[in-house]
């Protein structure tokens, strides 16, 4: 099947998509956007989190066809004109990135949280990011990064 969708502001048209494919597979293997990660294929790890029409979703659980005509934003779309988003800067500088496989999904989830709740409490951060597994950091530096990003956004 043919799928036309807008990803990171650009219209993509891909052909020969198998209808059982996920949005994640389509992004990674057909659109040249491997930033979103495939780590569990069942919505348990959050590594594939992308925005679908402005809402953070697990792209492994969205059928490719469900994205037809929708707007998708991936980790590759968070930076603007080469300038990292404050959430990206904070993750980098706070040591929230080790192996980094969870990072793309966490960035989108944290980006969404701070867009809705500019100054979240620690418990709000924890509940909002509970769907994003990290195996390297123990999450402390991820919390640091989200707090830091909130401050950066407030100052911006």
């Amino acid at each position: 099947m043919r799928i036309t969708t807008t990803v990171n502001g650009a219209v993509h048209e891909v052909d020969d998509v198998w209808p059982g494919e996920s949005l994640l597979y389509m992004l990674r293997e057909r659109m040249g956007l491997p930033g979103s990660k495939n780590a569990c294929e069942q919505g348990e790890c959050g590594s594939c989190t992308v925005y679908l029409d402005g809402e953070p979703v697990c792209s492994c659980l969205v059928a490719a066809g469900q994205a037809i005509g929708r707007e998708v934003t991936t980790v590759e779309g968070l930076a603007t004109e080469g300038q990292l988003h404050p959430v990206q800067e904070a993750f980098l500088e706070c040591g929230a990135v080790q192996c980094g496989f969870c990072t793309p999904g966490l960035l989108v989830a944290a980006h969404d949280l701070l867009a809705r709740v500019p100054d979240p409490s620690d418990l709000e951060i924890r509940e909002a990011l509970a769907g994003n597994l990290c195996r390297c950091t123990g999450y402390e530096k991820i919390l640091d990064a989200v707090r830091s990003a909130a401050r950066r956004q407030a100052e911006a």
Binding site: P19, G20, S22, Q42, G43, L61, A63, G65
Partner: peptide
Amino acid sequence: AIAGGTDVMVDLNFDRRRPGALLDLG
């Protein structure tokens, strides 16, 4: 039938189910 996909896609991704069609109710 598929709505949010949070069950159906798991079955597809894990090769547990290969239906003739997906009926997207979204």
